[in-house]
Design a binder for these strands. Sequence first.
DNA 1: GAATATTACTTAGTGCCCTAATGGTTAGTG
DNA 2: CACTAACCATTAGGGCACTAAGTAATATTC
Lengths: 158, 158
Amino acid sequence: MLESEGSTEPLDNPLALESQICFALAVASRGVIGAYRSVLEPISLTHPQYLVMLALWQHEKLPMREIARLLRLEPATVSPLVKRLEALDYVTRTRSDSDERIVEVTLTDTGRELRKTAEAIPGTMMAKLGMDVDGVRELHAVMQKIIASVDAAAEAEG
Amino acid sequence: MLESEGSTEPLDNPLALESQICFALAVASRGVIGAYRSVLEPISLTHPQYLVMLALWQHEKLPMREIARLLRLEPATVSPLVKRLEALDYVTRTRSDSDERIVEVTLTDTGRELRKTAEAIPGTMMAKLGMDVDGVRELHAVMQKIIASVDAAAEAEG
DNA sequence: GAATATTACTTAGTGCCCTAATGGTTAGTG
DNA sequence: CACTAACCATTAGGGCACTAAGTAATATTC
């Protein structure tokens, strides 16, 4: 009896796997990112690379710092990630003239072209996961609350 | 104008970062796992290692295969993870007598002892994230729906 | 104007997560 | 009985995410 899926009372044992705040969230996140894989593979993007491209399709050109802030990642994570996008010829990296500490990331023509293909992805993913616009909005609201709690906790911790 | 936090209409631009099913979920998941860090650090556990320990506190002894299934991870992910737990002297790994393909993972006395300390963690985390039992239950329900959708999509894909 | 602090990015190191390939072990079939 | 198929665990390799430490450029302070 190693089944755990049938539990309807997730909190009778606080140390049960199903009772953890983190577990279902982590599984769902990994699962959804995994579901993107086959959709992103044809355009040679991983999921976080796709997120960088989304940011650039919105803003055309962004400094590294801003990409990290928008994606809520450490600069040290974004740095090699953007280098791979450069290797794919989707972006270029150039030092700013006014402040040579800053590296500006800009879409190439190839990267800009890719947007047309990418426009189908949100719809594809919603269909794939059987979600509608309201479902996405609801999920977004719940996640936003969690993120706010995490931020507050991090603030309190320093 | 690089702000994105103020958006109240997440779906007016389907390619906007905030409109993605994946993005808020990934940020929330990373954030919550990050919030566990300072709580797990005193007992030398990372988050996925903690999940393995939870499974073992529930079952005392599990084959590798079963840990991977319960945690929804690939066996190749669990293998080095459990080795680190063995290095910490929290678990032992022994080949099954009846089927020598199987590696049984068992709690050591140290690992069993650790449960007492760990019993405080769920409460600590709920307090830290400002959640109550109902909040956890609600989050769990929403995540369960997502996971079911992901499973259905994976099933359809083959 | 020189010393100090801050900022932007990168590198190194650890761990997680996946896919693909490998090596044993068991079970099923002619 | 030998052969094949299935199964379990591991290794190898790529990418992601974090922390800590390092380099270079800009700001600040005296």
